[in-house]
Design a binder for these strands. Structure first.
Lengths: 335, 335
DNA sequence: CTGTTAGCGCATTCAT
DNA sequence: ATGAATGCGCTAACAG
């Protein structure tokens, strides 16, 4: 199958390329009903599809959006990407994909590459929302996802981290946990907005002002120190039971590992709650009560707000907005 | 920042665009050492990057590869994609991403879109490897991943499903399980090569010829029938313990759910093994012994074999190959 | 309503 | 060693 060009179609339909071009772009008012039909048939018969590359060159707008994700391996991220792809498809956009593997340096490379790739717009799920590279981006053609910068200069689509945790931990209190025996477990905060916001929600709910109830873990090294902290907390509990809230699924995994090592069981020995809802959380015994986020919708929303900006010719220099996507609490009996 | 073109560089360096073009393409033999230096400096200073769109139009080879995955939400898939992206980056290729969401119809759309997108090559993680659409693709510019067609017409990079399961189940036998009490749990086979191959490995290991030891589940509906089957099998066991091998992580999740319902515990009441290694498998108590596949490497291998074909001008019409990536057995005490 | 023409940014002969 | 000219496939005035 040789590739047809607009010239071929023009010749076959006995019109000029300009007319074909107009047809392709829906400018039907600029041709007779007859030639329109003729082109319609011609194109269907020949299965002709215009070259998006050539079109991109001519219009400087190729209907592709560049995506940079922090870590595609994260189940949250892949669902977001799924939403992005779906929404793009519906709007006729192509997505070129980029992955930072949680490395801020690679994130910079990715954004630069994407900029030079001449994409129409950018969606970024940032490793580091404060990265200087983002200051080189215009809010007119980019939106951020999940993590927001302290000073939002670019539209950001995020989950309602603060409110969700505030409410969830509030529920824990209602079922008997006291402030002094509630703890927030997280990756090192490192100025990452999701962590900060969720923690802020925890602090509001418990009224704890200092960081004495903040426990940190990370993926590197063993968990010896972490395990000893958990033990100490449980040993010194003030009330009947300690309640832990983990910042996400992987942190929860660390907690479960530690509890295993210490031979603690939930919900009897301690109570557990978590941000993020992963498939295994409803299978293990008992299921984990958690905050479920609609990550697919996050992706869709990002695309829609981006494309709205891209295709809105008149108004430019939009004022940066923070768009919060609601979450859902799933009760499964882990506290 | 306005965008520079090859013309600007030519003017600034006081040479013709042809010379700049030659420089960009590494044809240094076609210019003096002096102008070469000049261009080098010029380009660095101005931070000029040639337009890949324009280049694509001119050369009809845009250094982008199109990827169609069956389901980006699958952790296996996202790791593969990660490998694909990494390898592409190293080779200077861009990836345009497409997701079928396990829908064979969408897969067709994706492939068509990609073909018309004028990508240089295609990597496909198929929903249905037997899809007729793949017969329209040339082996010279595409490779398949994970699932293979019965008659391999396109290079396919897969894990060594058959051998891995054969060996794993063999190990189960060595530790006491008898053929009659070993069962293979799977999604409906539906001609999906990974399922067929893994099942074949199971049959070879156990010597069971018929399908009496094949149990099917799926994600739709409740698991009542499945649960009753499990119960029946355990009730009628011939030896001390029944051993189950699940075809992948999600199937394992169904089994665990059923066992919970039946109040069975592993490794005491029954033994468990699985294909696929997910993070929660080493956390739950006890950990799940399984077959770990290097999915990242699968992606990398796919890209390398694809790009080798794309850039090998002389030989075309390669003979389709089946490339097997080795797996690893992780013992964790679930049987 | 329809056709002509001049680019878009780059690669590639063919001259010089 | 270097440059002028032409074309890749399409869009966008501008004519007619």
């Amino acid at each position: 199958m040789e590739k047809l060009t607009i010239k071929d179609i023009a010749r076959l339909a006995d019109v000029s390329t300009a007319t074909v071009s107009n047809y392709l772009n829906g400018n039907y008012s600029r041709m007779s009903e007859k030639t329109r039909k003729r082109l319609e048939d011609m194109i269907r018969e020949t299965n002709y599809v215009p070259s998006s590359v050539a079109r991109g060159l001519a219009t400087n707008h190729n209907k592709t959006i560049g995506v940079s994700v922090a870590d595609i391996t994260n189940p949250f991220t892949s669902t977001v990407l799924s939403g992005i792809y779906d929404a793009c498809g519906k709007l006729g956009y192509t997505v070129v994909f980029t992955n930072a593997s949680s490395d801020s340096t690679r994130e910079i490379d990715n954004v630069n590459k994407l900029k030079h790739q001449e994409v129409s717009g950018l969606i970024i799920d940032p490793v580091d929302a404060e990265n200087a590279i983002f200051k080189t981006l215009s809010n007119d053609s980019t939106v951020m996802i999940d993590r927001q910068a302290a000073a939002v200069k670019i539209d950001s689509v995020v989950t309602d981290n603060y409110n969700a945790v505030n409410k969830f931990v509030g529920n824990m209190k209602k079922s008997g946990y006291i402030d002094e025996d509630l703890y927030f477990i997280s990756w090192p905060l490192r100025n990452v907005s999701t962590r900060l916001e969720r923690y802020r929600g925890f602090k509001t709910a418990t009224g704890i002002k200092d960081d004495s109830h903040l426990i940190l873990v990370d993926d590197s090294g063993d968990d010896q120190y972490f395990i000893s902290q958990i033990k100490q907390i449980v040993d010194r509990k003030r009330s009947g039971k300690v309640g832990f809230f983990t910042m996400n699924g992987r942190v929860l995994l660390h907690l479960l590992k530690a509890m295993q090592a210490l031979n603690y069981r939930y919900p009897d020995d301690v109570g557990i709650g978590s941000y993020e809802d992963l498939d295994w959380m409803e299978i293990i015994q008992p299921g984990i009560s958690c905050i479920h986020q609609d990550s697919f919708n996050l992706g869709v929303t990002a695309v829609n707000t981006l494309v709205r900006k891209l295709e809105d010719e008149k108004t430019k220099h939009f004022v940066p907005q923070l768009i919060e996507v609601p979450t859902m609490i799933k009760m499964r009996g882990s506290y």
